Amino acid sequence: MITDSTVELVQSAFINDLFHDIPRIAIPAGESSKNLSQLEQVLDFLAEHRLNRQSLIFAVGGGVVGDLAGFAAACYMRGIDFIQVPTTLLAMVDSSVGGKTGVNLASGKNLVGAFLQPQAVFIDTLRLDTLDKREFAAGMAEIIKAGLLADRELFEKLEQKPVTSSNDPNLVQIIRRACSIKAQIVSADERESAASGGRALLNLGHTFGHAIENVTGYQGVLHGEGVAIGTVMAADLSAMMGLISPGDSQRIAAVFAANGLPTRLPTAIPAAKLLDAMGRDKKNRDGLLRFVVLSSIGEAITHDNVPVDLVMKALSNGGAT
């Protein structure tokens, strides 16, 4: 079983009841653990305990644990099975679903990885009771994104009644819907090979967001916060391209804010650094920046030839210098 130091502490009763004396490794909590060095330590752990091709890994934790454990499962003995047990809202609605695994490099996020579908994903919303408000809100960013991609009604529900607590009576239904949207998109384009649209649509806000995470050294900005800021920038870009109205762009920013998320950079970052980081994004095609933009609330498209001056304007509007 693979977890992290925080989950091992706050979910100790759950882990001990469920996994008893199954060998476990707890990696340091946080995005900084999602690297090749930590992967090597996990692989050594699997070898020391003599796992074989009939063995099974449980990934118990948030997105970092799931991505790292899944990649370890994909690499070890050229692939063994694993099961996702997400303990954060973001992992429940996004990273545990879809089969993408991997680690970061200094050059960028998720640049090394593999596709490996988990044998199962077990979601228990009681695990969310230990999340602080900021981590809970980070998960809401991916749910809002799902509504923007494929479900205007979901977006409008979150606009009318923001969800800011794990006690919300609508949360289970909302999680189920967000997972369904992602599963539907992934099933049509599992390896993100479609010439346009397809699984790449799930990266709405992520071209901006991953650049923010990379330039800030994966410190100070949670992934969900980067997605929120990045999606607001993407909506602004969509409005400047004439795809949606400025009013819809403002609505999108307001919904993120109402659900407890930032909509601008917390500190000024040079726009040139962010643009450089975007140039290393794995979604780019033929040397061109590739963005997911909105054609309406509830529908998105990929665009491979966005004018750089509009990208810089969106960055500036979001707080870059």
Rank of each mutant, 00 (worst) to 15 (best):
D44R: 15
L51S: 09
G70D: 05
D309F: 02
V292G: 06
A253H: 14
A146E: 02
V308L: 11
S96D: 05
L43H: 01
G61P: 04
A200N: 08
S96T: 09
G30A: 07
P307G: 05
G70I: 05
V232M: 13
Q41K: 12
I174S: 07
K161L: 13
K133D: 15
K313E: 11
Q184M: 11
L148N: 10
T321S: 15
I252F: 13
F14M: 01
I244E: 06
S96W: 09
I269Q: 11
Q160R: 14
G62M: 12
A26K: 00
A106V: 13
G287L: 01
K182D: 02
S37Y: 13
A73G: 04
G102T: 03
I301T: 07
L294Y: 11
P118W: 06
P23Y: 13
E225D: 08
L204G: 08
K145A: 15
S32H: 08
G230P: 06
R127N: 08
N167D: 12
G147Y: 07
S32I: 11
G139P: 07
N305G: 10
F291W: 04
A194G: 04
T231I: 06
D276N: 08
V85I: 15
G61Y: 02
H49Q: 13
I25T: 10
S180E: 05
L56A: 11
V227Y: 04
L148I: 11
K145S: 13
T302F: 03
I144M: 03
V65T: 14
A253M: 12
C75W: 14
R264S: 14
F14V: 02
K313C: 02
Y218Q: 01
V311I: 14
S295G: 10
F71N: 05
I229Q: 07
F256E: 12
K145L: 14
G63M: 11
A314L: 04
V221F: 06
A239I: 14
L158M: 08
N203P: 00
A272R: 04
G298E: 01
V121W: 03
L105K: 03
F14N: 03
N203I: 05
V10N: 06
S295I: 06
S166F: 11
V293R: 11
Q54C: 10
M140H: 01
G61V: 05
I175S: 04
T267P: 10
A13I: 09
A141R: 12
M1P: 03
V186G: 12
N110L: 04
N305V: 06
F291A: 00
F155T: 01
A211V: 07
V172C: 14
T88F: 05
L68Y: 12
L68K: 14
E225R: 01
S165D: 13
L128I: 09
S165N: 14
I175E: 02
K282I: 06
S55D: 02
A120T: 10
A253W: 03
I57P: 02
S296F: 00
A59G: 10
I244V: 13
P162S: 15
L51Q: 03
V306M: 05
N167H: 12
R127Q: 12
D236E: 15
D189K: 09
S196C: 06
P246I: 12
S37V: 13
F19P: 06
D94K: 02
G318C: 07
E213V: 00
V85M: 08
K273R: 10
T321G: 15
A69V: 12
S249W: 05
E142S: 12
P262R: 04
G99A: 00
S249Y: 02
S55L: 04
S5E: 03
